[in-house]
Each structure stands twice: as C-alpha cells, then as structure tokens.
Amino acid sequence: MIPATSVAEVEGVASSDSVRKPREPFVRRDGLVDKLLVGGTGAASFVMLAMLAIVLADIVRGGAAKLSLEFLTEAPANGMTAGGIFPAIVGTVLLTLLMTLAAVPAGVATAVYLTEYAPSQSTLARVVRVSIANLAGVPSIVFGLFGLGFFVSTLGRAIDVTMFGGELTFARPSLLWAALTLSVLTLPVVVVATEEALRAVPRELRDASLALGATRFETIVRVVLPEALGGILTGAILAVSRGAGEVAPIMFTGAAYFLPQLPSHLNDAFMNLGYHVYVLATQSPDVEKTKPILYGTALVLLLLTFLLNMVAVTLRSRTRGKLKPAL
C-alpha cells in the first residue's frame, strides 16, 4: 500500500517538523501519505470545533439582544410573546437542586462501595457496574416513561392512598417526581467521577491512616473523601449541568408550559428553561413573535450549562494536577 521511501524523500520530509517526535531521530518518513493524514485528521478536528463555534455564535448573536434584567426577572406575558423567563429559571434551579440532593449522596455512596468496600472479584460489584453503565445508556425519553409509570402513577398513588385518603396530591406530575427521575439519570455521572477521584487517592494515605489505628470507615470519612473532594465536586457539577439541560425525562413528570405562580410545594408542577424552548418552538402560534424569546431562553440555558461545565473542567484539571505529583 505504501511504497518504500527513497533516501531523498526521507530527508525531504524530516526537515518539516510537523509530526516529528524528539525521541525518534532515525525514523523513516513517507511524505505524501503522512501529509494527507495530518491534513485530513486536522481538518476533521477543525470541523468539530467549527460545529461548536457556529452553534454558539448563532445562539449568542440571536439571544444577546434579549438578555436583560427584565427578561431574567419577569414572568411571561401576552400568551408567551412578551415578558421574561423568571419562573423557568426558578423552576430549573429548584429542579436541579432537588436532583442534586438525591443523586450526589447516592452516587458518592455507590462509588465508595465500588472502590473501598467491594472485593476485587465481587460479582455484586460487577452487577452494580453493569447497571451503572446501562443507566448511562438508557435513552432519556425512557426515563420519562419510567418516571411517569413508577414515580407518578405508582409511588404517588400509593402515597395518596395511604396518607391522603386517596385524594389527588402526589399522584400527578410534580417537582419532586421530576427531580427524582433526573437523579436516576444523572447517577452514573456522579458515580463515574467519584470513582475516578477515589482511585486517584494514593494507597499510602489509606495505609497510613489504618496503621495509626483508624478503622476503615474512619479512614474513608476523614482521609479518603476529603482528599477526593475536588473530584466529587466535579462530578456533582457535571450532573447539575446535565440535569439542567435535559427535557425528555421531565416532560411527563412535572414540567409545565405556563404557570401563574412559582412552585411552593414539592408536589407542584414547575416551568423549566429547556422545556420552555421545546414548547415555544413546537407549539407557538406565532413563531416570528416568539423567536427572540426562544433565542434568549436558549442562550440563558446554554450559559448556565457552559458555566457549570467550565467550572467542572477547571476543577478537575486542578485536582488531577494536585494529586499526581504527591505520589
């Protein structure tokens, strides 16, 4: 496939240092194929960056004009063609907060079990791992079906029957059920990040703690977890960012198109930024009038998730850098 290279070619390409590795001084080179590969794969990378840049540029350009204090702090008006998105922001924040309360402790405990307690050949640990991998791959719309079928229709009804004499209280889409559905969806994010953080904690720290007479539990709580805090936080932030942007799991479990009041109870429905974009884009009677609001909402959602992601990425690279040289 690739012809043997002549000496002239070898020298000719060796002078271009585009792909040269310092530790390989006498490596043979093949000119054209090499250049094609570097060029082609480089172009592909550029295409990916361009895709991101184009989407960002368009949303920022379309939404920047709409971004104002009024837009962020007012409720929608005139059948969604005017006003702001305050209730959607509040709903999204409440939703992700509740979700975090459920997903982070569960995810951290699962990761602690997997890395600190489970024997290395444990079947149980393997099943837990397979389950986590599967949770990560279940389509988000299936989570929506699950939330409706389990949380709303089954658990909610059971609560109503036992505690409210059958009166409709929890057996309807609400903040609580949407948050719990989302927490199942984001659980793998927390588990994977926490596991990585726990594994990065040097074994010597655990050994030293145990040698000083601490129990395994004390070692985990006082030595391992504090050391892994950065990585755990990264996972939590990534989960929040993921949860803030998901729409499919909450469409049947609690999100509402328009509500005159902010949610005040766990069993209230709520507005949500992503759902707002979805509904306005598909069901608005007057697309041209709602377009600026759509762009504005998309921009706020994008800024929110981006900010969270950037914090997470920075935090992770810092904590990684901190732990490695300590070995």
Binding site: G245, A298, L302, V313
Partner: peptide
C-alpha cells in the same frame, strides 16, 4: 463543552 450543550439547544 460540545458534549455539554443541551440537546434542546442543538435541536433549536
């Protein structure tokens, strides 16, 4: 970051 873009934004 690209992976973090909410799908509803990409869809929009």
């Amino acid at each position: 970051l690209m992976a973090g873009v909410p799908s509803v934004v990409a869809g929009f």
